[in-house]
Design a binder for these strands. Sequence first.
DNA 1: CAACGTAATTTTGAATTCATAATTAAGTCA
DNA 2: TGACTTAATTATGAATTCAAAATTACGTTG
Lengths: 228, 228
Amino acid sequence: MMQAPNPHAITRKSLHHELVDRLQTLIINAELEPGSKVPEKLLCDQFGVSRTPLREALKVLASDGLVRLEPNRGAWVTRVTIEEVEEVFPVLGALEALSGELACKHISDDEIAAISDLHEQMMQSYKVRDLGAYFSINQKIHRAILLAARNGTLATSCQALSLRMQRARYLANMTQGRWQEAVHEHERILEFLAARDGPNLARTLMDHMNSKRLSVLRWLQSGGATTD
Amino acid sequence: MMQAPNPHAITRKSLHHELVDRLQTLIINAELEPGSKVPEKLLCDQFGVSRTPLREALKVLASDGLVRLEPNRGAWVTRVTIEEVEEVFPVLGALEALSGELACKHISDDEIAAISDLHEQMMQSYKVRDLGAYFSINQKIHRAILLAARNGTLATSCQALSLRMQRARYLANMTQGRWQEAVHEHERILEFLAARDGPNLARTLMDHMNSKRLSVLRWLQSGGATTD
DNA sequence: CAACGTAATTTTGAATTCATAATTAAGTCA
DNA sequence: TGACTTAATTATGAATTCAAAATTACGTTG
């Protein structure tokens, strides 16, 4: 037994940890559909593992809010609901604000230069309307600021909540107007970061998060969540 | 097999969920000593469960930072370190500040009355120097404000981080001076909450958390963590 | 045919088993 | 004796097994 012929089979390091990562990816990419049942057996086959480590991973994902465990009925992929968006974005706003404050205190010139560079790349992506690239660089910038804050707990908390908001491909819905607005907000973010102006960076990041909340809400309310 | 004669044996609901709760309690009460190895076998016997659900619970606790999993070497109870305190309290401060802001927006008169009542009880505990009762009511007040914020995500995040800071019995170290200061801070908290003054409540809660950080740090630096 | 009840099947939760890694104990030799 | 090997023991990670719950399939009756 064992030794699955499946090319996706996992071999290295702690199985359950690896599975948490993989399942997270499947969920945020909506390869596991929101609202659907987690196909335990299928995933075991695909990953070439037994149920034990997979179920361990599901318990962790449940505590992160990515799946919901129903007693004797298995695990279900959670949906991004309006209520959840209304809850998570304010929290993310407060955390990103703190992240901005701390980053201004600790960031090095090199890090500012690196973020500045990312910013330029992002602007290029905006000019050629490459939403995928834009979004990817955008995440890198936020991640870099979080890193500059020198607070691992803050980073972990932020990322966990961000993940929950990434489950949907709502970015496809971003209007030209909203995109332009987001770009403008990012200009200010870079400006305040370069000036190491903590309070203003904090406020801008919080506002930025609030804009995002509204954007996601619009998408949700216009039926964007109809994936099943 | 099964049917453990142990009176503490668990029978109801999802085993792993129950175990997460029980282990959390053991850890924050330091019945599982910080820095020590989690005695898997012993716990299985005590709870009358097999290793599978216990290990599932350990995975969840690890993702919450209460234990650390070392590959092929088992689970270890994490310690409260200076670095962790410096990281967690600022995050908690930001979250409690938000909690205060939101509570002022949503809290009902009845809830304010209930918190006011708790406050009076707490003052009584202070007068008679009953630190245990004081601490317990203190937690209830913070919990009540968190509840009034009407944001489950915020509440969950706060509680998870608070748990990590509760692992040690640092309250025993609270000086008379610090205690008086804390009481004074709580007077202001109640005042601003009753006035539904969000910004001031937010700032006061953040300051309160910062005071707590300093207090815990003093305890840690004076060797308070020497439990093994 | 539809609603109900019952048997077969599948899925789930948790205990058990098993291979392997880590630790401890025992033995060897300078 | 004490450092180093190697064997025995124990603990860990993960697969497997098993009982109970849930779901599905089937048949019965009105």
